[in-house]
Design a protein around this nucleic acid. Structure first.
Lengths: 339, 339
DNA sequence: CCTCCAGAGGTAAGCGCTTTCCTGAGACGT
DNA sequence: ACGTCTCAGGAAAGCGCTTACCTCTGGAGG
């Protein structure tokens, strides 16, 4: 592997000059030398060692992103926004999938810290797990103390820049919509109970129930994996357990799609016999049949905002900035008045 | 930011000892010292600088992955497989989105090279563009010459380890299925014409047409963006342009879903009046209505194989290994005999 | 009692680059 | 002709770590 020194030797100049040329530093370099050096670079097919550069320079350039799983449409959309902004700023982004494992999330924070990334965007949901949460917060603070920037998406213990989707309000919107349509017995397909996203959305739903004079008891709520199959299984359970069920609220669209599959296989007409509402408005929601009513979260936009926060220069005495991402109700064909 | 030297000073030992302890090197270290050092590490919250480590060590550890777009389900699935294997090997993976821009793809190869990644997996389709292709091949070869490992997915000029999905055969399967169902006039929604994936699938379709005594002319083929909206637009065009059209083959499922939306909005019954077949069998295909007939590619498996190839130790005199990923026909509800 | 060796720990030479500071040479003014 | 200023280019000191090699100690073996 050719090094800077090889190029310098070949061109008959010092390494300093080569460095200046390949980085086009402000320091002026004569035309003749420049050409000779460039020729040497081409001949030796020199590719600078990024690790050495990083070490020698003070600046940090890459940014890290920690998500639960990029192949989940929710994170895919957010990631798209993150990437766009990062690319505009000429930053490389390193994507890390925690696969919802908190330990792996912690490990990734260390890893990104170790790699001297300029910023970390934590896109996954917060956990209801005090020890984990505390360790995470500690690591993030340490990272910030050593010059890193952090932005989180969702409700986390960490005090700093954050984009907070209106999960509670979104849950309320979904519940309110269903109750307004005349439904009185609704089942909820919830995600893993240790995620703040789950509990926030759920409490919005609960508030809607109360404000309409109903209650959501344990019987009406089924916790499951935050994906299609989790949703399908939970739908089956609810259908069997809750008599007189006429509506289902799923805490994300993937689960709603799974529920839809379950309902279809049981030949239960949606929305005639059972109304269904999802959450997130992922792109596919409009293409299932019936198209999915849902609570829209501006996912790509959330990514954009988060990366913008992470990359902004934050003065030391600055207040952390918390932005809310609005949840809006999107009514499509999977919800109807109680039959 | 605390450094190794700080820790050493604090613990009253040499940096060598600290290094040995934190990397638990085979060299034995006394219990007393070990504890003192570990205490110092904790107190100073020392996180080793990964760049410095990389530079000092000879070994390369991270692996790079270049895809068109992770948020596209096709790549999301492949990436899942790639990640799984990488994680099993304890490797960090760096994901780069080229957004189908060949120049960006080239730039990413350089970037991954510069970062001393152990391997590069090129997951995007090949291009029909000689200069680009040649430059890409040159860069990959250079990278290999300096010790990097390369595995490509799809048909590329680069001679080396590769996973080649049976695109041509898959195209044939799709076409053959449609013709067997009695369709004689079929329209094709193709992807960008400069991608080898597009042309390979298309030529399989053509072969099927010929073998059934038909021809696919320009009129029957509409090129579009490889996504949902591209598919919707192309479907509309075909419907208007091709009289007597009774079947549509889309060259990927995203486009098929778009076509489905178009057909639905025109109130054209699928599969009664028009049959539709997709390609890839992405997860959502089973959840649209009607469920999508398609050609299945074992996407996650492709990712697994590709990463396995990239990570295997390849002896210098070894033949490049080329594995084929089998395409299989999956008939669901979007195809039916010609009415 | 001396030699020899193994094991624990330290010393210091890099890894490949950037950047500060220095040098030498020409340009310019008087 | 001399001093001074400017500017292109080089020398060398790191950046934070790893590791080959060296040193010193204590105990085993004769």
């Amino acid at each position: 592997m050719a090094t800077l020194a090889d190029v310098a030797r070949r061109a008959g100049v010092s390494t300093a000059t080569v460095s200046r040329i390949i980085n086009n530093s402000p320091k002026p370099v004569g035309e003749a030398l420049r050409e000779r050096v460039l020729a040497a670079v081409a001949e030796l097919q020199f590719v600078p060692n990024a690790n050495a550069q990083q070490l020698a320079r003070a600046d940090r350039t890459a940014v890290g992103v920690i998500v639960h799983d990029v192949s989940d449409p929710y994170f895919a959309e957010i990631t798209r926004g993150l990437q766009r902004v990062a690319t505009e700023h000429g930053r490389l982004v390193i994507i890390c999938n925690s696969y919802r494992d908190p330990e792996r999330e912690l490990a990734y924070v260390d890893l990104l810290h170790a790699h001297q990334t300029a910023a970390i965007v934590l896109a996954g949901s917060g956990y209801h797990d005090a020890p984990i949460t505390a360790r995470l917060d500690r690591k993030l603070r340490l990272y910030e103390n050593t010059g890193g920037r952090v932005a989180v998406i969702g409700r986390h213990q960490h005090a700093g820049d954050a984009i907070v989707p209106e999960n509670e309000h979104g849950g309320w919107l979904a519940g309110d919509a269903l109750y307004r349509l005349g439904h009185t017995t609704i089942g909820v397909i919830a995600g893993p109970r240790h995620l703040t996203t789950t509990t926030d959305r759920l409490s919005g739903l609960r508030r809607a129930a109360r404000s309409h004079g109903h209650r959501l008891t344990t019987k009406h709520i089924e916790y499951a994996g935050f994906d299609r199959n989790g949703g399908a299984a939970a739908a089956a359970t609810l259908l069997d357990r809750v008599p007189g069920l006429t509506a289902i609220a799923a805490l994300n669209d993937s689960m709603a799609v799974g529920a839809l599959a379950c309902l279809r296989s049981r030949r239960i007409d949606v929305p005639r016999r059972v109304s269904l509402i999802g959450f997130d408005d992922m792109p596919i929601s409009v293409d299932v049949t019936p198209s999915l009513s849902t609570v829209r979260l501006p996912l790509e936009q959330i990514g954009v905002q988060a990366m913008s926060l992470a990359l902004r220069a934050r003065p030391a005495d600055d207040e952390p900035q918390v932005e809310h991402a609005a949840a809006t109700l999107v009514l499509r064909d999977s919800t109807a008045p109680r039959g």
